[in-house]
Design a protein around this nucleic acid. Structure first.
Length: 617
RNA sequence: GGAGGCGUGGUGUAGCCGGUCUAACAUACGUGCCUGUCACGCACGAGAUCGCGGGUUCAAAUCCCGUCGCCUCCGCCA
């Protein structure tokens, strides 16, 4: 009584409409809810498309009525019945199928279900850890189901677009060689060569460049990437890229291609027209105006440089900052002149938390009055000048940070976003794309003080900087620009790419800049350097973070909501229990031995019932 | 590695400046009643050693310490 018996579904629950009225349908799905009115039972039947109401009437069909009596939430059933229009006054405008209902003739139970750990209802979300443990139930909720669908549609549209534009989808190894640059690698021990390891690919970067050297010309891949770094709302240890590379290209061709792809996806998936080309900002401009390399351009409150206005000031905070080679920057917060002392203090604390020495406020009150803790240190001209440059009007609040450039704009950039969010100044429905171009080639690692590739070491220096490579001092290193670009959507870094180096001599010079000796370079990347000598075409590309992309389009706050089976912030999967211990035999086969470890942690976990076997250490 | 938040019946919350907590409310669950519900309604019922361990106290969900888990952020993420 629990297999299909030749039954065939005629349509999905959420698709039953007026046009089906009069016809018999066979539906299969889960019992979302049962409303037992005594001598009449309503069942909401659910599948991935939505809900439809089933009516079980003892007079019409005693058999199905009896069956309906024992149904419970999440039972899996087949319902055969006739679609009818609902009686006037009983329609439900809240669901798409609300004008019709199905009069059940037959109800067949495929499977019973235990009472679920949480109600499968769209609104109420239980704690995320419970959703993760029972992810298969969580995904039954239509918002989650719709996210999965959206993700599929975006991937499909991207794939179709790229294929139509001559790109071939080619797979590259997930298990590859560990390379020194970049994130921490996930390592896979080799059984056949004990003591050696594969690394899970952080991206297909090197392989796609080799494909260009092969003459593939246009490549793409929907590719899983692995990086062993700490998690965030928008970061998982395994994530998916839409990876694209093409030969004989420059920046403009990449921008064109990507804008076309976005336009296509918006049309196909959202049914709306996207305005292209996207605006562009150089990295310098982005930092100047937004204090971020991924500016949210959906709202104003841009950062102003007020250094010139107060250049001759006597106010020591400004004076000292400028004297030390720093700068004084400000943002104007509209309509917030009357913020309480307490709120301002909180903002100041926040600014200090993220690196500023302090936060100076000037309130331009409606009656031309000025309120500011530093009022007496500034001249009237300075106060007016600041008002003009920041575009502040009466009723507005100006927040000022005096510091090194990076700190000043960085702090204000973050304040800008947080305050705008708090004030509801961000139009949630908008999709504002912006290209950020001309990234620095190198950036200094704060901890070790060494220079690192800002994008990756295969990025071409900008053409005008090429001649500088031979004769560089430390100062110049930070000024070098790269042929690298990011696509930013609503303040989220969606995609990142560059025109690559395709000549051995230049690649070697860049390795040198990165303090990678020739021997090391040959040892780690020799295969690429060699390949450059066998006819490497100019090439470049871009890679999208698919999870973030879908997150933004779905309006989700975390990529976990657009991934079927994500991991927790500590990198574990609450559903499967990964990562798990493995048997001594497995370790032995790989030539591995665990070192003696403090097992308190493991023991505490066991006490919590989070693991099912004692550690094998 | 660091900072912060949270952890109370299945689920979501209240209680948290110690005693009246014999732990409240909603929902889910069970039984019964109900022919137009759609967050159905009504009645009754069952369900929690307050994450775990230790400490302070006459007394701990409540205070302290440790620990585990989840979340957010910094570092990290070519």
């Amino acid at each position: 009584m629990n297999d299909l018996d030749g039954l065939k579904r005629t349509c999905y629950c959420g698709e039953v409409r007026e046009e089906h009225v009069g016809s018999r349908v066979t539906l299969m799905g889960w019992v979302n809810r049962r409303r037992d009115l005594g001598d009449l039972i309503f069942i909401d039947l659910r599948d991935r498309t939505g809900l439809v109401q089933i009516v079980c009437d003892p007079v019409r069909s005693p058999h199905s009525f009896d069956a309906a009596k024992c149904l419970r939430s999440e039972y899996v059933v087949c319902v055969i019945g006739r679609v009818v229009e609902r009686k006037p006054g009983t329609e439900n405008p809240n669901i798409p199928t609300g004008n019709v209902e199905v009069l059940a003739d037959t109800i067949k139970i495929f499977n019973c279900a235990k009472t679920p750990p949480f109600v499968v209802r769209d609104e109420a979300e239980p704690d995320e850890s419970i959703r993760m443990k029972y992810r298969y139930i969580d995904l039954r909720r239509l918002p989650m189901m719709n996210n999965l669908k959206l993700r599929h549609e975006i991937v499909l549209a991207a794939r179709n677009y790229l294929s139509a534009n001559g790109f071939w989808e080619i797979e590259t190894p997930a298990m590859t060689r560990s390379t020194p640059e970049g994130a921490r690698d996930y390592l896979v021990p080799s059984r056949q060569e004990p003591g050696r390891f594969y690394s899970l690919a952080q991206s297909p970067q090197l392989f796609k460049q080799l494909l260009m050297i092969s003459g593939v010309d246009k490549y793409f891949q929907i590719c899983r990437c692995f990086r062993d770094e700490d998690l965030r709302a928008d970061r998982q240890p395994e994530f998916t890229q839409i990876d694209i590379e093409l030969s004989f290209t420059d920046e403009e061709q990449v921008y064109d291609l990507v804008e076309g792809m976005m336009k296509h996806i918006w049309k196909e998936v959202l049914g709306s027209d996207l305005c292209v080309p996207f605006p562009r900002l150089t990295w310098d401009e982005a930092m100047e105006r937004y204090g971020s390399d991924k500016p949210d351009t959906r709202f104003g409150m841009e950062i102003s440089d007020i250094t010139d206005v107060i250049r001759d000031t006597e106010f020591s905070v400004f004076k000292n900052a400028i004297g030390a080679g720093g700068t004084v920057r400000a943002i104007c917060v509209p309509g917030c002149a009357e913020l309480s002392r307490q709120t301002l203090d909180r903002l100041t604390d926040k600014a200090k938390e993220i690196g500023a020495k302090g936060l100076i406020s000037i309130s331009y009150l409606p009656d031309k009055e000025i309120k500011s803790p530093v009022k007496k240190h500034l001249t009237q001209e300075e106060i007016i000048g600041i008002k003009q440059i920041t575009g502040a009007e009466e009723g507005d609040l100006v927040l000022i940070v005096a510091d090194e450039f990076d700190t000043a704009v960085g702090v204000l950039g973050r304040m800008r976003k947080e305050i705008a969010q708090h004030l509801g100044l961000i139009p949630e429905e908008a999709f504002d794309f912006v290209w950020v171009t001309e990234f620095p080639l190198l950036e200094r690692n704060k901890e070790e003080g060494v220079w690192q590739a800002a994008h990756h070491p295969f990025t071409s220096p900008s053409t005008r900087d090429l001649k500088l490579l031979d004769d560089l001092d430390e100062q110049l290193k930070g000024k070098l620009r790269a042929r690298a670009y990011d696509l930013v959507l609503n303040g989220v870094e969606l995609a990142s790419g560059s025109i690559r180096i395709h000549r051995r001599d230049i690649q070697e010079k860049v390795f040198e800049l990165l303090d990678l000796s020739l021997e090391e370079a040959q040892e780690k990347f020799g295969f690429l350097l060699d390949a450059f000598e066998y006819g490497a075409p100019p090439h470049g590309g871009i890679a999208f973070g698919l999870d973030r992309f879908v997150m933004v389009v779905a309006g989700a706050n975390t990529i976990r909501d657009v991934m079927a089976f994500p991991k927790t912030t500590s990198g574990s999967c609450l559903l499967t229990g990964a990562p798990s211990e493995v048997s001594p035999d497995q370790l032995k086969e790989l030539g591995l031995r665990l070192i003696e470890d403090n097992t308190d942690h493991a023991r505490a976990r066991i006490n919590q019932g989070k693991t099912d076997s004692p550690p094998e250490v």
